[in-house]
Amino acid sequence: MAQIFKPNANAIIRVSIITGILLIIGIILTMVAIYRSTYYTEVGVAKAQSVPFSHKHHVSELKIDCRYCHATVERAAFAGIPTTDTCMSCHSQIWLNSPLLETVRESYRTGEPVQWSRIYDLPDFVYFNHSIHVNKGVGCNVCHGQVDQMQLVSQAQPLYMGWCLDCHRNPEQYVRPREEVFNMEWAPPENQLEMGRRLVQEYEIKVENLSDCYICHR
């Protein structure tokens, strides 16, 4: 009977075991790299918008409150994206002839909504609600970063589950007095932990079951 293994079989086996292991490690490393890269997380990547709307201009220079445009953020799960009417409440008088605003004016004439590209988007199997966070003293800039300094909005962090849980396990690291939620300049004071613990009690934040799966996956 002919030999099943040829003399070079040992070498082939060795090489293929080693390349196999290297390949597996390689694939895992590439997947981790992709998972962490801005290509996947989109952190800091601004998207083109149909109107070059600048938060820096409207929020930090004109001091317009977030709620003027994101009007349902205190009341609903969805923060709200401004309607054409909201822009026109000023731009029917201001910068009337600017070509940058042509899309907005056309939308006002025709009733077709302006289309914006979404920046923050959780997977559909995660439930999120703005109103509870805003009413329990979690500020916009904890999650969205310094939007007031952005010309075009980009993600401030990648919305990993671990990031949500980090706060849900120890909210005292982040909570602030309710009236400071919309203040983009607010920075944690030195006694943040002490104040945070007091506020967690005062706002009756139920830390015990805040990291249960059903809170976010319902």
Binding site: F78, I81, E112, P113, Q115, P123, D124, F125
Partner: peptide
């Protein structure tokens, strides 16, 4: 499961004529 067949608020729809 990331993009389930339901609409998020204000999402674009190919079904309705005005999107």
């Amino acid at each position: 499961m990331y993009d389930q067949p339901r609409y998020e608020p204000y999402e674009y729809s190919a079904f309705f004529a005005d999107g």
